[in-house]
Nucleic acid binder design. Structure first.
Length: 829
RNA sequence: GCGAGAGUGGCGGAACUGGUAGACGCGCUGGUCUUAGGAACCAGUAUCUUUGAUGUGUGGGUUCGAGUCCCUCCUCUCGCACCA
């Protein structure tokens, strides 16, 4: 570049990025409407919680999504790429309290700032579709949906023991309790009895499980996690009559084949029959103390420790309906009230937990299933025998295969009326009640005479009381707001009170992807535009939502389908779970002090450099190690490209097509077509932008060599322009501002947006010179330059005659010559 | 403990169906240009006892040939963790 060049010495990202962002905004370049003539593509990144500012995780997630969106546009798709805000939730209330402001104010200010950050990164969203879930225009429709679900019997209210977080002053769903602590604040969760609203996700448990097999575009890991989370098991519920009363003890087992091996019963300390069993007994005091001790231990149990099997005999017995044997009933610390019936038939010979328990309390062990080629001596056993085998000690079932026996014994239980086959799930119904202010109000009314009455549709939305005064008062739960609570009963007209619980914020995120198809609709939850746009073709987000958000979204999709709003079974055809952004080997966090600020980076290097490095440093599914020098390298690459292009633009000669393309031209064109092939493959296959970028870098290096004025061989201007044009299209999804600007500098007559993704020509991409590797006994000894059309026979001859090879094969008998087409010759001696 | 994934230069990472290990980038070394350069450009860069040998966590196996396939073990990461 000369001194008086019209182009600055250094690529001025600041001016350039602003120019193109304004251009895209004023031209509404990324606005989309349905177009039946075009194939649609819906790419969505998990929307953010408006916490204040975006972090590098967002930058990575949204950059990946943006490249996909821009790439698919170039591929000719009608691309929907929306963005919004997951705006309800606890941090707004905490912040509001701390800063004496209102959660709404705090939230909307955060949204405004974060939106400006996303714009600075040049993401190609259709901003016309934007919404925040705390907009009444959104939760209005969520409330309507709630009422429709209520009509369908998918919503109910019950008193349950809930997970109560004292720090957050709210109830948590099971999914939000991580190893006994709150997912958000890490405080220990307390059990508490409360009214709460529930969604019947269990009604869909089977379908949610079955349809997992259709999710080919999901990482196997996520599918497995959901599979385990649903945790379906089938088996037998069997009633054991309790001696000395009319009560029966119901147990659930997945191993009915071992029922003749029952030697005791284990029940949970919270089991409803515990009072009847031990009440008035002579050891009641002792047992009560034991139960209290278990509860205490449970509350403060170290997170990871396996607890020792402990139990205490209740003094009571029941009878095994299969062999009429007397079975002592124990209270045991390892039995979960929340699963099955809260009581377990203990078969120590074939269940490890029961085995340990039996050894501790010297209870009998009776083997009833003998695995092939095994003998089971109760006194010698060191562990339970859980494998299948043949039944013994099992009355009429002796000799039967244990797998067959499982079914046979269930049939028998049903015949004699003591039990029935049963399916149970680890998954629970979804408790959605939250005792918080900043959430969507649950649209129900409590009337003293009519009971629970739904809010009439015409009264929706039930708005959060916003209150003119700001202040901490706004953050108190709705139950302390008489202006909100007091209403009239829609049924009898008498005074009544509103429900004061708000919905779990996971409700909002369970259907937002559908709302993006028609977010401007003020009259309905959704409309037929969803038929065009849904399902989401590519969903991108962190693996931390593998269970919660993704399972709820699948559930809502099926509910919306059954309510007639959607005609799909699954919301997300393909799922990409991107890795974390880490620095110095650890996840970025304030406490570790290794946080990188996107604003600072963009200010220093520009959005394109940040985007380029995020894509280049690792494939999307892996963790990304942030490296300041690597960012520098990405910036350098863009500057190198810029200087080359600016130089060419300045010294432009009329691009006359070369009459006869010389070797330099052919080499460059070959490289170009190889690059198109590689980049297309890498993106189509698994979004491996890192290798796609490295391919473009190679192309650029080849271009630099072919335009080097100090070298005798240079490519002709026409070819060089062709390469630049194509290279800019290839790079444009990744560094869009940069490519738009280079396109402008090159003064191409057409526009970059109107380009389509380049296709490659196999013939041009084909090498006409090959390097053949020559091996002796599998070790590389020489190389051979040959024409691409060489025959195997001639290769063989040249290999044997090669001077380097001769040294190794001379005087030895050649046993075998292996020729791999166009690759190598291996001579075995 | 169970399940899944991963171990490749100083670093991030490449390597299609077994066929040139280390693409691309960072860093480093030397040089050019400069008053200077943390700018730009050029050259080099797996290791070693360097006509050669050794190298993809360990040890074995299959094969003409193994980072890639099979078995053993080790380490790390992530899920689940008494689900009867």
């Amino acid at each position: 570049m000369s001194e008086d060049s019209p182009f600055p010495q250094k690529y001025d990202f600041c001016t350039v990025e602003k120019r193109w962002q304004e251009y895209w905004e004023t031209n509404k370049t990324f606005r989309v409407v349905e177009d039946e003539a075009k194939k649609k593509y819906y790419v969505l990144e998990m929307f953010p919680y408006p916490s204040g500012r975006i972090h590098m995780g967002h930058v990575r997630n949204y950059t990946i999504g943006d490249v996909v969106a821009r790439y698919k546009r170039l591929r000719g798709y009608n691309v929907l790429h929306p963005m919004g805000w997951d705006a309800f939730g606890l941090p707004a209330e905490n912040a509001a309290q701390k800063h004496r402001t209102h959660p709404a104010k705090w939230t909307y200010e955060n949204i405004a700032y974060m939106k400006s950050q996303l714009k600075k990164l040049g993401f190609s969203y259709d901003w016309d579709r934007e919404f925040a879930t705390c907009d009444a225009g959104y939760y209005h429709w969520e409330q309507k949906l709630f009422l429709e679900m209520y009509d369908r019997g998918l919503v109910y209210r019950k008193i349950t023991t809930v997970n109560w977080c004292d720090t957050c002053q709210t109830v948590l769903a099971n999914e939000q309790v991580i190893e006994g602590t709150c997912w958000r604040c890490d405080a220990f969760v307390q059990p508490r009895k409360m009214h709460g609203w529930f969604f019947k996700i269990l009604d869909y448990a089977d379908e949610l499980l079955q349809d997992l097999s259709t999710l080919d575009g999901w990482p196997e890991k996520v599918v497995t996690m959901q599979h385990n989370w649903i945790g379906k098991s089938t088996g037998l519920i069997c009633n054991f009559p309790i001696e000395g009363g009319d009560e029966e003890l119901a147990i659930f087992t997945t191993r009915p084949d071992t029922i003749f091996g029952v030697t005791f019963m284990s029940i949970a300390a919270e089991h409803p029959l515990v009072d009847t069993l031990i009440g008035g007994g002579n050891r009641e005091k002792e047992l009560r103390a034991f139960i209290a001790a278990i509860a205490d231990e449970k509350r403060r149990r170290p997170v990871t420790d396996e607890l020792d099997k402990k139990g205490m005999f209740t003094g009571r017995y029941c009878r095994n309906p299969f062999n009429n044997q007397r079975v002592p009933i124990y209270i045991a610390n390892f039995v979960l009230m929340e699963y099955g019936t809260g009581a377990v038939m203990a078969v120590p010979a074939h269940d490890q937990r029961d085995f340990e328990f039996a050894r501790t309390y010297s209870l009998p062990i009776v083997p009833v299933v003998i695995p092939p080629d095994t003998e089971l001596d109760p006194d010698q056993m060191t562990a339970a025998a859980t494998e299948p085998g043949r039944l013994v000690n099992s009355g009429t079932f002796n000799g039967m295969d244990s797998i067959e026996a499982q079914a046979a014994i269930i049939v028998h239980a049903e015949d004699i009326g003591c039990g029935t086959s049963h399916t149970t799930y680890r998954l629970r119904d979804w408790g959605i009640s939250r005792q918080r202010y900043w959430g969507a109000p649950i649209p129900m009314i409590h009337c003293p005479s009519c009971g629970v009455v739904p809010v009439p549709l015409e009264d929706l939305p039930i708005r959060l009381p916003d209150g003119a005064d700001t202040g901490a008062e706004e953050c108190t739960p709705l139950s302390r707001r008489p202006d909100f609570i007091n209403t009239t009963c829609p049924s009898c007209g008498g005074p009544a009170q509103r429900e004061t619980d708000t919905m779990d914020t996971f409700v909002e995120s369970s259907w937002y992807f559908a709302r993006f198809a028609c977010s401007d609709n003020d009259d309905a939850i959704l409309d037929r535009r969803t038929d065009y746009w849904l399902p989401v073709d590519q969903y991108i987000g962190g693996v931390e939502h593998a269970i919660l958000h993704l399972l709820y979204s699948r559930f809502f999709t099926k509910v919306l389908r059954d309510l007639g709003y959607l005609n799909i079974d699954e919301p997300f055809t393909n799922l990409l779970t991107q890795g974390m952004v880490i620095k110095d080997g650890a996840k970025m966090s304030k406490s570790k002090g290794n946080v990188v600020d996107p604003d600072q980076l963009i200010g220093q290097y520009g959005a394109d450099t940040v985007r380029l490095f995020s894509l280049f440093a690792a494939p999307p599914e892996r963790d990304l190690e942030w490296n300041a020098q690597g960012v520098e390298g990405a910036s350098r690459f863009l500057n190198r490209v810029y200087r080359t292009i600016a130089h060419l633009a300045e010294h432009r000669t009329i691009a006359a097509p070369a009459a006869e393309p010389d070797e330099s031209d052919r080499d460059l064109q070959r490289k170009l077509h190889q690059t198109i092939r590689k980049v297309s493959f890498d993106i189509d296959n698994d979004f491996h932008f890192n290798t796609a970028i490295s391919a473009v870098m190679e192309l650029f290096n080849a271009l630099s060599a072919a335009t080097d004025e100090t070298k005798p061989q240079q490519a002709t201007p026409a070819v060089i322009e062709e390469v630049i044009r194509t290279m800019l299209v290839l790079l444009s999804p990744m560094v869009p501002h940069f490519c738009s600007e280079m396109w402008r500098i090159m003064a191409f007559t057409d526009t970059l947006e109107d380009q389509s993704w380049p296709s490659f020509d196999e013939k041009t991409a084909r090498e006409d010179q090959l390097t053949i590797v020559l091996q002796v006994n599998g070790k590389v000894r020489s190389r051979l330059q040959v024409g691409a059309d060489i025959s195997d026979e001639s290769l063989r001859e040249q290999a044997v005659a090669d001077a380097n090879m001769v040294r190794y094969i001379e005087g030895k008998a050649i046993k075998k010559i292996i020729v791999v087409k166009k690759k190598l010759v291996n001579i075995v001696v």
